[in-house]
């Protein structure tokens, strides 16, 4: 598999490490009423068949965290963007 890093260009899969779902949002830890949101954030994941936004780290390249849209059925990489917005 090849991933096109928006900074480094197309690279081999082994330069990257996978983290997981990029759509989850970290709740506010100072708000005491977020217990369910925290459980969702840390433990619960959907497992969609098809396009999925995922976080990957280009650890052997530019060290950027990337938001990769991957088709989990075909492994096709549909889009790669920096996870840090406005980068």
């Amino acid at each position: 598999m090849r991933i096109t890093c928006p900074y480094c260009g197309e690279r081999a899969l082994d330069e990257f490490t996978y983290r997981g779902d990029a759509t989850v949002k970290r709740p506010d830890s100072l708000d005491e009423n977020t217990a369910e949101a925290w459980v969702d954030y840390v433990y619960l994941r959907d497992n969609p068949a098809g396009p999925h936004k995922e976080l990957w780290h280009h650890g052997a390249g530019c060290h950027a965290w990337l938001e990769v849209t991957r088709d989990t059925v075909t492994h096709e990489i549909l889009d790669v963007a920096f996870a840090r917005k406005g980068c």
Partner: peptide
């Protein structure tokens, strides 16, 4: 290495 990667995650994703 793991801590480095974690800090980068915190910088870029959690608290950009």
């Amino acid at each position: 290495v793991r801590v480095s990667q974690h800090l980068e995650f915190c910088q870029e994703v959690l608290w950009p």
